[in-house]
Amino acid sequence: MSDCQHHWVMTNVKYGFVIFEKCYHCKELRTYFTEDDSLLLGDEYREGEHFYNRLESAQSFTFDLICTRCNRLETFNDLIGLFYCTSCMPNCQVEKLQQQYAPHKTWIMVAFGVLPDAKKNPIPQAKLDILSDYFNQRRDTTRSRIKIVSFELIADLARCKGGFIHDVGLLTKEGPSEERKPLF
């Protein structure tokens, strides 16, 4: 079936929140996606050996891709959001790639994954390529292209000021966003 020239469309779009948590004891950072907004106001809690403290949350949305030609479903359970770089750290690998690709009219976008799992099992390059294909196949690529890279390239997650692409303020208006404080 690999001869199919895949034509991807988004499916299973879910709206929710990315939660950043850190364990007091082992200092490990974990991230996950949830559709449950009650988690946003929760206190720290214990889970096994860990004692998680909520650091930050952000609106996001997740999705899968399906090929309209061969019906192949590509799931993205390990993707919790698409993230944009704000060039906040000059020595960050994402920013360096941006600089490198900008003259070729290729824009970098970051696929944000699940921590700590991604440390052992990074988002596979093949999946990142499918994401890039999805955005490129529907655009006028003579003008510009999209390249999706993994969030592991971010130099310092705690200081990163990038943002998740999300549906802002569907309930009410949101004021101008303030600068985000370092996570920890």
């Binding site: 944009y84 824009w107 976008m109 955005f135 003008r143 510009s144 999209i146 692409i165």
Partner: peptide, 8 residues
């Protein structure tokens, strides 16, 4: 802006 960019 990122969205406009991605959707071309």
């Amino acid at each position: 802006v990122s969205t406009a960019n991605l959707a071309d």
